Amino acid sequence: MHRADHRPSRRTFLDVSSAMVVAGLTAGCTSDSARPGRHAPSAAAAPVPVPATGRHQAGVTLPQPAQRNLLAVVADLAAATAPGPLLAELGQTIRTLVAGTDPRLLGLPPGDLTVTVGVGPRLVRAAGASLPGATDLPRFSRERINPRERGGDLLIQICAGDALLLPVVAAALLDQAGDRIHERWRQSARRGTNVPIGNGLTAPRNPLGFIDGIVGPHTDAEQRRDLWLAGPAAVTGGTLAVLRRMELDLPRFAALSVAGQEAVFGRRRASGVPLSGGTISSGPELGAKTPDGRYLVPADAHVRRANPTVVGAGLMLRRSYSTDGPAPGLLFISFQNDLRTFTATLTHMDASDALLRYTTTTASATFLILPGFDRQHPLGSRLFG
């Protein structure tokens, strides 16, 4: 679902019960970093509630394994709107929605609902020009982006195992915000079933059929190094998010042989094993060659061009979601504690990455995902208090 120019009102959530039946939303929000020893529950298992409060906001690394459904809403603050009081209200509403006590849930159980809130560079700069998250995302090649779908002041990421919750929760939050925000665009998306990748970790397949999210900050040490912000105090415990919505040229990609598709990614489609051999969790041996001198992992393969060691950047918690529309699409979200991790990677990919030949970016934004909150410390209070 993709809708722009939406102005929230109290009528919104009253109309949503019929809208959600028509929409039949299915979307994806699956964490890429399930901890060793944790296994996905069976389809019949009741979802486990996820606390809304804590050091970090839910919806980045928690729950694990994570929900399959996502709705991202990007909005701007109206003129003269103070972000502090608005964010505090949204945080309180998130708490009541997750607890199941908000009547705007229309009787739906919240289950494993999470809501994650981020603020865009304009708001971050107003709080401090040198803060992480104050830099706008640059422009890259293969973009066809409407001005309303580039940037934004506010991100509301809603994830749940029950897809019917997504429009209901969005309507409640937009109703709470009232005329203080104006929606730019929204995107629902979904992910497939997770595939085991070893050491208790799982990753789903992306819309091109390949296992996605094999490489990332999976351990606590990696997450402290590459995912979570360690300072200044106003942002400690937060992270930086990048959203990129793309159209995919699936017919042209599907016309390749399996070997051709594998050369684009640098991994086996069925197993996820690098073309240089090993196991799915093995790092590709980028120097490995055939007897006649050809690289086993082609020079323009995605795993080579996006390799953190080659790029000289940290790890990203990467997620790819399937979207519907006039053309098949993908919603890419990455979390990292340094925006350069993303920008340097995509700059290196822009030069020569075979995967980009099959993508056109139609929306792009970056946000500071605020630190966690609780009753004593409202959402956004350390940045805008």
Rank of each mutant, 00 (worst) to 15 (best):
D5T: 11
V21D: 05
G24E: 10
G24W: 01
A27E: 08
D32S: 15
A46W: 13
T53A: 13
V60N: 01
P65M: 01
L70F: 03
L86T: 00
L87D: 01
L97T: 06
A99C: 12
L105T: 08
V119H: 08
L131F: 15
L131H: 13
A134T: 08
R144T: 09
I158R: 00
G161V: 04
L166E: 08
A170C: 12
L174A: 10
R180C: 05
R180Y: 04
W185Q: 05
V195Q: 10
G198R: 11
G200I: 10
P204I: 12
R205L: 15
N206R: 09
I214V: 13
G216E: 07
Q223D: 08
W228D: 02
L229Q: 03
T239H: 09
A255C: 14
L256N: 03
A259R: 11
Q261R: 08
G278M: 15
S282V: 09
S282W: 06
P291K: 00
D292W: 12
V297P: 00
H302E: 04
A306H: 10
T309D: 09
M316A: 03
S320C: 12
L330K: 03
F335C: 04
N337Q: 13
L339F: 09
M349H: 11
D353Q: 00
T361C: 06
T361I: 04
T362I: 05
S364P: 13
F367E: 05
R375A: 13
S381K: 11
G385V: 14
